[in-house]
Amino acid sequence: MTWQQIKKKLEELNIYHPSLLPAIHQLIDVDSSLKEIRKTLKKDGFSIKTTSREGADRIVPHPLLNELNKMEITKANILNSLMLTPASLKRNGVEIQPTKDDDFDDALKKRVDNIETVKTNKRK
């Protein structure tokens, strides 16, 4: 996620204002931190092995999992404050029309088409 992408999206919605810059920069920082945490978790795994003072080994959740959860919540709050979620747009009375190149809509349409194809093939 880049500053230009966020600014472009806000301008498309006619809600961009220079006073939003600190929130945009915070969103970029949080997003880059999330990427680093995910990269580390992918490399290390979701649990780590620790040794107690007595010498017993035990497996515990990775400490970065808590940070990941906190960062996800922070990112969601920033996106809401910038009105970059459908729910926040709706709450603030901004009407949005789905775009033709919406990945989610395309994926959903392909899924529905596949289901209908399977149903048609079963009938034959």
Rank of each mutant, 00 (worst) to 15 (best):
K119V: 11
K9H: 09
R123T: 10
L65V: 10
A87Y: 00
D103W: 10
K124M: 14
P86S: 06
K109G: 00
L82Y: 10
T99S: 13
A56Q: 13
A56G: 06
H17L: 15
K42V: 07
T51Q: 14
S52Y: 07
S52E: 11
E67A: 14
T99F: 05
T40M: 05
M71A: 12
E116W: 00
T117D: 12
L41T: 00
K8F: 07
T40V: 11
K70V: 15
G55R: 03
S47E: 12
N121K: 09
M71T: 09
S88Y: 04
R111C: 01
S47A: 13
D102I: 05
N14A: 09
L20A: 10
P18Y: 09
S81Q: 10
Q5A: 09
E12S: 07
M1H: 11
K75H: 02
S32F: 12
Y16F: 15
E54G: 11
L13G: 06
K7I: 15
K75M: 12
K70F: 12
M71G: 02
G93H: 03
D31G: 03
E95D: 14
I96P: 06
N121H: 03
N92P: 09
R53A: 14
K90C: 05
I24L: 03
I48L: 02
K35C: 12
I78R: 00
P98D: 02
R123E: 15
L20C: 05
L27D: 01
K39P: 05
K90N: 15
K42S: 06
V30Y: 07
M1W: 06
E72Q: 10
I15Q: 03
E12Y: 01
E12D: 11
G93K: 06
